[in-house]
Design a protein around this nucleic acid. Structure first.
Length: 111
DNA sequence: GCAATGACTGGTA
DNA sequence: TTACCAGCCATTG
């Protein structure tokens, strides 16, 4: 697998950050996950840790595919995320992600 | 090793 | 519907 080389693109990263970035990078377009779901999927840490990782190294992954449980995100990122969601065709509901429709099942083959 | 921080969550008012 | 509170846990100083 060449994805190992990707790990060298940035700084050392911890095992947790590595797992978060890896999972976020695997989220298919038009699909989103909540911070809590990412943490639960990894089996460790919590939603705050996921946010901390994305705030630190999120520039290298599709962070807009990770949103709050309400389908919203911080005002600082809302405009940017909205633009990406529209381009990728993500289900949107009144300036928020339509979680019931856009939430990723964890299976890339599910459509 | 300890204390503070934070792109969160769920419950209550 | 929005606003506020307490809990959670890895990372950083």
């Amino acid at each position: 697998m060449s994805n190992n080389d990707d790990l060298k693109l940035t700084r050392a990263r911890t095992s947790f950050a590595e797992a978060v970035l890896d999972l976020v990078a695997r989220i298919p377009a038009s699909r989103v996950l909540t911070y809590g779901d990412v943490a639960e999927y990894l089996g460790t840490g919590g939603p705050r840790q996921v946010g901390t990782v994305l705030a630190t190294e999120g520039g290298s992954v599709p962070w807009w595919r990770v949103v709050r449980s309400d389908g919203t995100i911080p005002a600082r990122l809302r405009a940017q995320a909205m633009s990406h969601w529209q381009v990728e065709g993500t289900a949107i509901r009144d300036a928020r992600v339509d979680m019931p429709k856009a939430k990723w099942s964890g299976d890339v083959g599910a459509l």
